[in-house]
Structure formats: C-alpha cells, structure tokens
Write a protein that binds this DNA or RNA. Structure first.
Length: 183
DNA sequence: AAGCCCATCCGAA
DNA sequence: TTCGGATGGGCTT
C-alpha cells in the first residue's frame, strides 16, 4: 500500500461531544481522524491501518492547530473545511469514492447506490460501501452522510450512535442556519 | 488464482 | 416483512 519512503505521523488527541478524537498529520496534512473512547486502542488501530509508519504521539497537551480545527468542525458542522489539506492513502477506487464523498454537503445525505452511480459504477454499490468503511479521515471525509436506499441509517465504523449524532446535528444546524438567514 | 469478507440492493413470496 | 441471490473491491492464502 505504501511506497518505500517511511511516513512519519504526528498524533494528537482531543475531546469532543462524540468522545475522543485522534488526528494524525504529516507535513501539515491530515492523514487520519479516528473516533473512540480509549487512546491506546486508537493508537493500535492507527498502527494497523498504517503499517510501516512511524508514530509520534504528542504528549505535551498542547493541541496542534489541525486538531483544534477538526474538533471545531465536529461541533460546528458549517465550519468551512475546504482549505484543510487532506492526505489520501488508499487504492485509486477508494480515493475516487472519497473524493465523491466530499461533494456531499453538511445537512444532506446520499445513498450508497447514488454514490456508486456518481462515480460511474452503478453496480458497485457494495464495493462503494466497503470503500466508505475504509475511510480513515472521518468527519472531514463525510462517510457518515451515506445511508441505505431503504431509509435505514446503514453502518458506521465508529459506531452507528456517532453517525446518528452527526447527522442529527448537521440537520439541526442547517435548520438553524435557514432560520437565521430567512427569519 | 482462488477464496473469503463486507457499512448493499432489489425482487419475489 | 423477511429472504436469497447478485455483486465488486480488497485482503489473505
């Protein structure tokens, strides 16, 4: 998966209303955003997700700027994130799916089938779902906005409770924004 | 090269 | 509302 060059990741932790947030960055770019409840577990998951990578966990307690922005983005879904540099690490198919996901705005949802159609592979909805599950930059690549065709929530790597929370919040936030503008 | 795993979908009872 | 077959990418052997 990775080339010969060894990547060095700076790892930062923060707290949000979804629990623990772990941001891994390299050279000013976000490589991973994981959600969970336990630091050691998250670091373990990161290590298995990126073998052959050197991790430097920030113990200083001073959060990196990127971590602060990610947490802010979790709490305020309308925060613009287009200028946040992301580092995609995956197959070409996965990267295509993840790029298409970034077109889905906060407050909107899309089905796995529609997402598959958007990348020109309408019968690959199953593979698209797998690619969503393989997304390592949660929240910033909004795989939580993909739902099933029958209206069910669908799965989420970080727990369906977090997926639901994110969607409810984004919906509420959109309503708030509309009321604010129109009323 | 072949098998297994999946965060799905759709049609038929 | 349940059920089974189709389906395609990724990972392991």
């Amino acid at each position: 998966m990775l080339g010969k060059a060894v990547l060095s990741l700076q790892v930062n932790f923060g707290l949000s209303s979804l629990g623990l947030v772990m941001v891994a960055e390299s050279d000013g770019e976000v490589c991973a955003v994981f959600l969970g409840d336990n630091k050691e577990n998250l670091v373990d998951e990161l290590a298995t997700s990126f073998p052959n990578v050197i991790l430097h966990v920030n113990q200083s307690g001073a959060p990196s700027k990127l971590l602060t922005r990610v947490v802010n983005c979790i709490e305020c879904p309308d925060t613009p994130i287009n200028d946040l540099p992301l580092h995609f690490l995956g197959s070409s198919f996965q990267c295509e799916v993840w790029q298409a996901l970034r077109e889905v705005a906060a407050g909107e949802v899309i089905t796995y089938a529609q997402l598959a159609a958007n990348i020109g592979r309408p019968s690959a909805f199953r593979a698209v779902a797998n690619a969503c599950g393989a997304n390592k930059i949660s929240v910033l690549i909004p795989c939580h906005r993909v739902v099933r065709s029958n209206g069910e929530l669908g799965g989420y790597r970080w727990g369906t409770a977090r997926k639901k929370k994110l969607l409810v919040r984004e919906g509420e936030f959109k309503e708030f924004a509309l009321n604010h503008v129109c009323g």
